[in-house]
Amino acid sequence: MAAVARLKFRKPGTGRVIGDSFVGRAIRIYIPLLILLVVTLFPFYWMAVTSFKSASELFDFSVSPLWVRDPTLDWYRHLFTQTNFPRWAFNTALVATISTLISLFCSIMAGYSLARLRYRGADAIGWGIFVTYLVPPTLLFLPLTFVIRELHLFNNLWALILTYPTFLIPFCTWMLMGFFKGIPRELEEAALVDGATRIQAMLRIAIPLALPGILAAALFAFTLSWNEFLYALIFMNDSLVKTIPVGVTQELIHGDEFFWGELMAAALLGSVPVAVLYSFFVDYFVAGMTAGAVKG
């Protein structure tokens, strides 16, 4: 009898059990979700609230600090007129775009080669690329200062454009290998039988079919370079070549004095582009994780 009672019917596709009480769902789903949402989003809320507060209101905790009584855009105005913030934003976007393109170019080819072509050493090289995860930027930044100096790239955005692919390519290659493996081999073989060359089969069939994966890889690469901090901190000393993360942490703090309003305004503006990008492409993001983690 108990077993029969538990045998409930599912609405197809939703995973919702018909007859499940609202209170049960609230305790099981809505309340935990609400707690997670509040904890997750509070820092961003605090960032936004702070950026609209006047200097005196910032440090006034006698009334609730959770709301702005007298909103002002002064911090934003100051950020755009008195600091190099617009320049940092431009630099960040430029570096992120070019290093993403370079990484995609390299990892589409490498991913295809490792996932699809059969030759001696393919497995070993695939492993080798994966093992580069064991050598994170933290381990490389000191010797890299010598390499960058040899190439005369200090205070030159090319230093970042060339070094970011070292951590982007392994990730993208690994992710794209998953996508290429998911494309039926027969499609390419049919093209080969019809007289296409190997390169044509790759360009006309495999790469177009892997486009969702390429988009996901691009998204990851762009975000990772937008967020990068260590290399930019060390290779870029001149204010005009800094990226947002470095400019904001190094130049908006004067000695011991923190201009939290301005700092939070900059943090908010620096976060908006990636946040917008993600809200549009969150499905590709999940698909990318699936290909890399589940199939790979």
Binding site: P43, M47, F61, N227, L263
Partner: peptide, 27 residues
């Protein structure tokens, strides 16, 4: 889903600045 993903995709340095302000010694 997109909202819960935010902490991971927002530039670390920037969200950590917000946390530093949230952990301010006096305010």
């Amino acid at each position: 889903r997109a909202a819960l993903l935010l902490p991971y995709i927002i530039p670390t340095v920037l969200s950590y600045e917000a946390w530093r302000w949230m952990f301010d010694p006096t305010f």
